[in-house]
Nucleic acid binder design. Structure first.
Lengths: 199, 199
DNA sequence: CCTACCGATCGGTAGG
DNA sequence: CCTACCGATCGGTAGG
């Protein structure tokens, strides 16, 4: 007559990550406390410390949790045609976030902590490098296939990252879905101008 | 035999703003306390509360202080030739910040507080609207003069804002001067492609 | 503006 | 995991 373990016995770590997510969304990073996370978790603060030694450990684990989710989303793109693949990648980076506004807010907040947190910097840099690598790869593919001009791959990838980050920042700060839409269009314009200009 | 008043009797409000700036730069927004500001100020926490009723009042005043400085910088651009004026404006937005990295960090941090602080949102929106207005104006001028194509002014201005914000975010998070330089180049490319494409 | 202090809350721990 | 508690620090105030 035991309860179904799947419902009654969920992974405490994942539960705490989700609780941290909710607490962060509700109070913001500056007002994120163990107590508030514990309240969302539904248990005591000692329960949090049982699983994570320090607040810093918890927050670093949480950042990994968040960035892994993001990585999974981007990783889904599997088309091989360079033009289509670049389009889909930009869609993932600029259209998908509309459904995950909370995630955007959380990431932006933690990003702004980078100047004061080496752990955070390391994670964000690694994640950024990964996305930029994906962009470079698809652009290089396009150049080899002959559908894209022979451009400076690094520069174009960086330019696209700037557009992506700008759109995300503005989507959060000005709460406008417009930003992502405008950015998607701007990215498309840029790709056309930079990669297939001579067509 | 009195001390020179200019040195011995500075404006307390401005002193506190500068102290807040230093404290923010050193500890970050999440760890910004009245005590730390008071230490930078060189007086007691009660001295801070004598000039500002609440921490929130102080921080809102500080944001105004910061954004006014920024506004002054942008306002300096006075050339009338549309093409040159747009170039100078983009320089102000993307080249100037190199000398004020600390300011960028501070602004990014406070920006990320917008979802939790209506006062902040209001200020940032107003400031953003002003910059975007400057961009729209110069683009419209260029269109009237015939040096720019007859484009969607709103869209182009928004696209440039996205590039600017993206570059700033990345300059802070990844500590790379590259971002601003790449963004300046990207903005130039975009302007050429969007505004003088048919030339 | 200062000294001295307030209640509240912080991250973290002991003992079970 | 909980209860109970720790010292430290928080924003803010009273009284001068």
């Amino acid at each position: 007559m035991a309860d179904t373990p799947t419902e009654a016995d969920p992974d405490p770590h994942e539960e705490i990550m989700r609780a941290t997510y909710r607490a962060l969304r509700e109070h913001g990073y500056a007002d994120l406390t163990i107590k508030r996370i514990a309240d969302e978790y539904g248990k005591s603060t000692a329960a949090i410390h049982y699983h994570y030694d320090t607040k810093d450990d918890l927050l670093t684990a949480f950042l990994d949790f968040i960035l892994d989710q993001f990585k999974d989303t981007v990783h889904e793109v599997e088309t091989t045609d360079p033009e289509q693949r670049l389009e889909l990648l930009l869609d993932k980076l600029l259209v998908d976030p509309r459904d995950h506004q909370d995630l955007l807010v959380a990431i932006l907040e933690m990003r702004s902590q980078v100047p004061y947190n080496d752990q955070f910097r390391e994670r964000f840099q690694q994640n950024d490098e990964y996305v930029q690598y994906l962009l470079r790869t698809v652009i290089d593919q396009g150049i080899k296939t002959g559908v894209f001009d022979d451009v400076d791959t690094d520069h174009v990838a960086q330019a696209l990252m700037i557009i992506v980050d700008g759109a995300r920042t503005r989507a959060v700060v000005f709460d406008e879905e417009d930003s992502l839409e405008t950015a998607r269009q701007t990215a498309a314009e840029y790709v056309t101008a930079a990669l297939v200009a001579d067509d």
